[in-house]
Amino acid sequence: MRILIVSDAWTPQVNGVVRTLRTVVQELQDMGKVVEVVGPDRFFTIPMPSYPEIRLAIFPGKRLAKIIDEFQPDALHIATEGPLGMAARAYAIRRKVAFTTAFHTRFAEYLKARTGIPEFISYAWLRRFHGAGAAVMVATQSLREELMARGFEHVRPWSRGVDLAAFSPEPREEWDLPRPIFLYVGRLAVEKNLRAFLKLDLPGSKLVVGDGPQRRELEAEFPEAHFVGARHGAELAKAYAGADVFVFPSRTDTFGLVVLEALASGLPVAAYPVTGPKDILAEAQVPVGALDEDLRQACLKALEIERTACRPFAETYSWRACAERFLDNLVPVNALV
């Protein structure tokens, strides 16, 4: 089976969408599938306004059509709603090719936070974008229900996994900081709601691992917090394991891979009761995290949770199962012909 994935989010970007796609592609290839990802790296790009770390392909339609024609996929998946995603969608409609999409990112909420554009306008466009596909994949049941209530159709579940070999309770980073250590890992951007964490009155230390457009601003505003920049691989795993509580302040993520990475590292989670963390933590038989509209209370509750419960729960999330569900959700390109 030949699978072509078109995504505006791809290496060298570092985010949950890229990590998900890279891991699923590897799993599919291990299963004997022929998989190719078409990302912005194959096109002329410009920096995304207000987020220069992300590059956007410019007028990719003609070259993208040639790539699709040459690859001759059995299934086409459009992972994102950016310039590449729109070009792939236009190609598929023009050629009467069936395709699937995924709802990875709450662009409506992000656009409102950055530009003030009302959410209903963005959701109308997103509904139209995804409505042309045979199915739209989502990571959680609560997001599936929300999108269906907004008029999205053919919404299919597609959960996530965690690399249990990469993230574990040992070895730990021996942070030279007052305990307890409350850790955040992720992009430093407005949509991550990081101020909600950094302004909390908590004992011990606040530790921030990651980079992004808000870093300088947040460092200046919260000098008592410890910003150590982005970490990857073994260094990231040690950073997780060396903390006491993982804090996930985002209200707009559609899943939160970092939540699973923290749990795999033996780290209890504190978060708001929103899509992503509430879906993950609801499946635990014993407490592995705390949800509360008062994030400070969630942090303090999480501090009391037994760390040894976190890893076994994370072990129930498999990337192979994630890849198999993705495969089940795909449709043949000739399904509409």
Score class of each variant (00 low, 15 high):
Leu183Val: 02
Val37Gln: 03
Ala237Met: 04
Arg144Tyr: 02
Phe182Glu: 06
Gly32Met: 09
Gly229Ser: 11
Ser142Pro: 14
Asp292Gln: 07
Pro273His: 02
Phe71Ala: 00
Pro287Asn: 00
Thr23Gly: 09
Thr105Tyr: 08
Pro118Cys: 01
Leu218Met: 12
Arg89Ser: 12
Pro12Arg: 07
Ala323Asn: 10
Leu177Pro: 02
Ile54Ser: 12
Lys62Arg: 14
Leu236Asn: 11
Thr115Trp: 14
Arg231Ser: 11
Val259Leu: 12
Trp10Phe: 07
Pro277Ile: 09
Gly212Gln: 08
Phe222Lys: 05
Leu281Ala: 07
Pro52Thr: 09
Gly229Gln: 12
Phe103Gln: 05
Gly204Phe: 00
Thr45Ile: 13
Phe246Asp: 09
Trp10Ser: 12
Glu109Asp: 15
Ala135Trp: 01
Asp74Glu: 15
Ala271Trp: 07
Tyr240Met: 07
Trp175Gly: 04
His104Ser: 05
Pro178Glu: 08
Pro268Tyr: 02
Gln297Glu: 15
Val38Lys: 03
Glu315Val: 00
His130Ala: 10
Ser122Met: 15
Ser159Pro: 11
Ser159Leu: 07
Arg55Gln: 13
Leu263Gly: 01
Leu56Ser: 02
Val185Gly: 05
Ala65Thr: 13
Gly204Gln: 07
Thr275Phe: 06
Gly133Asp: 09
Phe313Pro: 05
Ala302Asp: 03
Arg150Ala: 08
Ile54Pro: 02
Gln297Pro: 03
Val286Tyr: 09
Leu194Cys: 02
Glu119Cys: 09
Phe326Cys: 03
Val138Ser: 05
Thr316Ser: 15
Arg19Trp: 06
Gly289Leu: 13
Leu236Gly: 09
Arg22Val: 14
His130Val: 10
Pro171Gln: 06
Arg42Trp: 01
